[in-house]
Design a protein around this nucleic acid. Sequence first.
DNA 1: TAGATTTTGTGATTTCATTCACAAAAAGGA
DNA 2: TCCTTTTTGTGAATGAAATCACAAAATCTA
Lengths: 210, 210
Amino acid sequence: MNENSIERLSKYKSSLQKLKTLGFLKVFSDNLADALGIQSAQVRKDFSLFGISGKKRGGYNVEDLLTSINTILGKDRIENVIIVGCGNIGIALMNYRGFVREKIKIIAGFDIDPSRMAKVEKIPIYTMEKLKDFIHAESVKIAIIAVPDIAAQRVADLLISYGIKGILNFAPIKLKSQGEVVINNVDLIQEIEKVIYYANAMDDDNGKES
Amino acid sequence: MNENSIERLSKYKSSLQKLKTLGFLKVFSDNLADALGIQSAQVRKDFSLFGISGKKRGGYNVEDLLTSINTILGKDRIENVIIVGCGNIGIALMNYRGFVREKIKIIAGFDIDPSRMAKVEKIPIYTMEKLKDFIHAESVKIAIIAVPDIAAQRVADLLISYGIKGILNFAPIKLKSQGEVVINNVDLIQEIEKVIYYANAMDDDNGKES
DNA sequence: TAGATTTTGTGATTTCATTCACAAAAAGGA
DNA sequence: TCCTTTTTGTGAATGAAATCACAAAATCTA
Ligand SMILES: NC(=O)c1ccc[n+]([C@@H]2O[C@H](COP(=O)([O-])OP(=O)(O)OC[C@H]3O[C@@H](n4cnc5c(N)ncnc54)[C@H](O)[C@@H]3O)[C@@H](O)[C@H]2O)c1
Ligand SMILES: NC(=O)c1ccc[n+]([C@@H]2O[C@H](COP(=O)([O-])OP(=O)(O)OC[C@H]3O[C@@H](n4cnc5c(N)ncnc54)[C@H](O)[C@@H]3O)[C@@H](O)[C@H]2O)c1
């Protein structure tokens, strides 16, 4: 149950969804391995780790496999999510159709700024005063933080105190979680810096070789 | 020079920037280790890997360390970046002030849709016809892809053929790179799925314990 | 100046993920 | 029915990254 195998599960799912729309009925560990650029043993190990088994010589049934993975990832039901901070990135996420397709439903936005209170794609935006009651009323477990970095830790603490169990954070600081809460920090600046570093490193290598 | 050490370099940088504004002059591997939640030996190994050395008993000079890391990450100059696909996420990124602060300058957007051609934060948006000449004229090396998934591979191939060396991709497909090009796929759905999985897993654990 | 203390730099060790490799099961011929 | 082929499932081997642990250097104390 390490982080990598969960990530791969997401990727298997995405491959399988494509196979399914193409009408494929079964799939071999080898096919999925090729799709992700890994070894077939890895695929089978992952599945065995989560108690998924196939048929020797028959591979895995696409439909069944997809169902199993969806269950593991909690995608057998719609997950309600809220966004705190409805600025550039918050609004972009609210507008994103891809979430709905994946059973991730943004049910509300929250912002400190009263001028943000317009609806986006039928999703209401509320003031921060409503946050506590809303989380309780809708038993929301997952939140996205898209506020400026100075406000992020405070918002996180607030969310956790109201019962949120999982946070996806876009502010470029490493949020500290207290207790049984998952925090996933997405740092886009770091992601670009990685690209820049490797692009430069490759260019330098080429310079050396010539 | 593995991927993890580059990521950590970004994180050291961000910690150091904060220390610098607080007026700190020196820092020990232990301090940075605490900030990132790792072991101090890891910090020293990372630095030694990139030829950065400190003083025994004196630690590292914050200013010098920051300069060294910035040089390694290519942050000693402004990196010009373009965005292809000026929809929700593309525009959000163009509006983001954090990039400028980190010497990442979005110098233009490109889109297939003529109705997108308005400027955003002084950044011009052009049609796809201008893409080739612009990349050559400005010798752009880095691009961000924010087009729908069906178009993403085609856009990537185009960018690579025009000389782009590094791509940050937001479309939820794994882009294949040909040749000496870095592609970093950011999959936000996968990031939320991870949060949902662990949040559910924790809840289940708690149920078991009680 | 001598001895104690702190912190780096790195070889040795441990930990953990991935790949290898093969027995066992299933299916397809002949 | 028996032999061949394919593919799974997993224990063993490998590989990579993180941690441990300590000698050497620098500074501090008296
Ligand atoms: N825009 C991007 O493309 C982008 C990219 C990477 C990271 N980020 C990060 O995401 C976060 C948001 O960026 P943005 O560009 O959307 O900023 P933004 O200024 O457009 O939006 C921030 C929103 O948060 C609200 N806010 C401020 N303090 C708040 C609080 N205490 N409680 C609730 N709401 C509050 C503001 O009213 C505003 O609407 C920042 O931390 C930024 O660093 C943004
Ligand atoms: N919006 C989000 O929050 C979000 C989150 C995660 C991932 N993504 C991904 O990012 C991508 C963009 O999402 P979005 O919500 O901004 O979509 P969007 O539809 O708002 O924007 C896409 C833009 O790309 C342009 N475009 C389409 N085909 C093109 C082509 N061949 N060349 C150039 N431009 C082209 C369109 O005209 C449009 O302006 C998608 O792949 C999406 O899956 C978006």
